[in-house]
Nucleic acid binder design. Structure first.
Length: 565
DNA sequence: TTAGGGTTAG
């Protein structure tokens, strides 16, 4: 028991070596570990290594288990610096770190504790450190912590011999994720200043993150061509996205023709992203027929539309107010065996709401939820008989649960079930479908909570609008306060809605007070806010009100807006 | 490793 005594009561290398017996020492180490004295063990290991004895050789199976348990305990305590330091030392003793603790757990804790330096230091003792650097940068980005992501990026650069394209690309993506596209440009320029030619992934990420700025994206694309980096399908798809965001149908068409040409020469193969994006270009421009033409193009090219493609096609019709066509496309999607998701269902529901077909929206919603709906079809608000999805094309989930929903055996093979999970957006759309029925909208908001969803600032704005629209201005203002109390910060739309309600109820005093309140909360009014306030100017009675109106005009011009009415 | 679809105010 000499080793145990040595380890517990103090350490003298000469006595230790003289009595060295691996079995005994291992038991001794276990004993010390049991007491949680891991740093004493480290001290012993350092000393024996100095004597030319392998530290690893002193551990038997049970001692290793003890060591792993103690490491785990330190990691669980969240003491990242201690954990990383210990792992570095143990790795130096050639212990398999991966077997002691799950590497991702340590990195996870470093990320939770916002310690990018420690995360990178830890990654360095593991194999595939470069891939882990990217994971660390990405994880910080997902948290919206751009600062830590950048620190991890900078720290990782020192550990690498040359610029790593994976890390650069990831850092650019994270800038986009955190809403700082300008920063992504600096990252890219840093590569250029090192006379490094970025690869296609770096260029694609840069263009994607800056897609909202068409001229920048096009400049990046030109530069990429000048450097001889060959554009791939993703590059073109991103260019199409940039055109879509800028509303540049003409340019998008040029690109579409160009890629079609490249496809005919066998250089590229247009994919489902290409077709879906160009469909969205036309959908946004209300060119639904052009969108449908693209569907034909893709089918003849042998590319199968997916949920996103169908969604874009449906919104092409929805944006033009063509509810019937939208529903027909939805039906066609089901026929093609493509299962709609919540987003796709929301587009259709929204199409109904935009066309004031509230009843139809509710019928679809109830049917998809699979609760007590008496049929998918029936009369819409205007009183005419209307097939939502023609009676024989009904879904099985409706027909099986609802006796009045007829199923035609001819169609039952394709009318398969699809699961429908309403989201907050779904409920928001349905709240809009309540028109001016405040209590119905309020009930939907309560239902939202019971199904585990949280109303967002949009839900509250809609509720406020409905309340005001039903003639209850005071109630609407109360909702603005309630949303703040519920922890949802009122944004420019919420305030503008409240101001609108005040203006409509001729309470100009309150409208002006809300306007100054939003400014004290650092919420910048926009053109809609100004116009809403100024819309009331014909009602200004007192000199004070006219003065306030003039002040609003000045304020608006200072903010760079021009009043158009 | 990259790219696409949904909701609020005048």
């Amino acid at each position: 028991m000499i080793a145990e005594t040595v380890l517990v009561n103090g350490f003298e290398p000469s006595r230790f070596v003289a009595s060295l017996n691996v079995g005994l020492v291992s038991r001794g180490i276990s004993g010390v570990l049991r007491e949680g004295k891991i740093w004493s063990v480290v001290e012993v290991l350092r000393s024996v290594e100095k004597l030319g004895i392998s530290a690893l050789g002193l551990f038997d199976g049970s001692a290793i288990k003890m060591l792993a348990k103690e490491c785990r305990r330190i990691v669980d305590c969240g003491e990242v610096e201690e954990a990383v330091e210990l792992m570095e030392i143990l790795a130096g003793f050639r212990f398999s770190i991966k077997k002691l603790v799950e590497p991702h757990d340590v990195i996870k804790i470093c990320i939770e504790k916002c310690n990018p330096e420690m995360a990178v230091r830890y990654a360095c003792i593991l194999p595939h450190a470069q891939i882990l650097f990217c994971t660390i940068i990405h994880e910080f980005g997902k948290k919206g912590d751009l600062r830590s992501a950048l620190t991890a990026f900078e720290t990782s650069k020192h550990k690498l011999s040359g610029p790593n394209m994976y890390a650069y690309r990831m850092m650019i993506d994270v800038c986009g994720l955190c809403g700082d596209s300008v920063k992504s440009r600096y990252i890219y320029e840093e590569l250029l200043s090192q006379k490094v030619t970025p690869n296609i992934y770096v260029f694609n990420s840069l263009m994607n993150v800056n897609a909202h700025d068409l001229s920048y994206t096009l400049r990046a694309y030109k530069h990429m061509q000048n450097l001889g980096v060959i554009a791939d399908m993703a590059s073109f798809n991103i260019l199409l996205k940039a055109c879509c965001l800028a509303g540049r149908v003409d340019l998008a068409q040029d690109i579409y023709r160009e890629v079609q040409h490249l496809e005919s020469t066998g250089i590229l193969k247009l994919d489902v992203f290409t077709y879906s994006t160009i469909i969205k270009v036309f959908a946004d421009a209300k060119l639904w027929q052009m969108a449908l033409k693209i569907k034909e193009d893709m089918l003849s090219a042998g590319v199968t539309p997916n949920t996103v493609t169908w969604s874009s096609l449906i919104s092409a019709c929805a944006n033009t107010g063509l509810v019937e066509q939208a529903i027909q496309l939805f039906e066609e999607m089901l026929l093609a065996g493509c299962e709609p998701n919540s987003q796709c269902c929301n587009i259709l529901l929204h199409a109904c709401v935009e066309a004031f077909q509230y009843d139809r929206a509710f019928r679809l919603f109830q049917c998809w939820k699979g609760s007590g709906f008496q049929g998918t079809f029936g009369k819409v608000d205007n009183g005419s008989t209307d097939n939502i999805l023609h009676a024989e094309n009904t879904y099985e989930n409706c027909s099986t649960t609802m006796p009045n929903c007829r199923t035609d055996s001819h169609y039952s093979s394709y009318a398969k079930k699809f699961s429908f999970t309403p989201t907050t957006t779904t409920y928001n759309i349905m709240m809009k479908a309540c028109g001016t029925d405040y209590y119905r909208a309020k009930a939907l908001m309560d239902e939202m909570k019971t199904v585990g969803l949280s109303p967002n600032h949009i839900s509250w704005s809609i509720l406020m609008d409905i309340c005001g629209g039903s003639g209850n201005a005071e109630g609407a203002i109360q909702i603005l306060k309630t949303m703040n109390m519920a922890g949802i910060k009122a944004d420019v739309v919420a305030y503008t809605t409240a101001i609108k309600v005040c203006v409509e109820s001729k309470n100009l005093k309150l409208a002006f007070s809300l306007f100054s309140e939003m400014k004290t909360h650092q919420i910048q009014p926009n053109l809609v806010t100004y116009n809403t306030l100024l819309r009331a100017r014909t009602r200004y009675g007192s000199l004070h009100e006219v003065q306030q109106c003039l002040a609003i005009y000045q304020d608006m011009r200072k903010a760079g807006y021009v009043h158009i009415q």
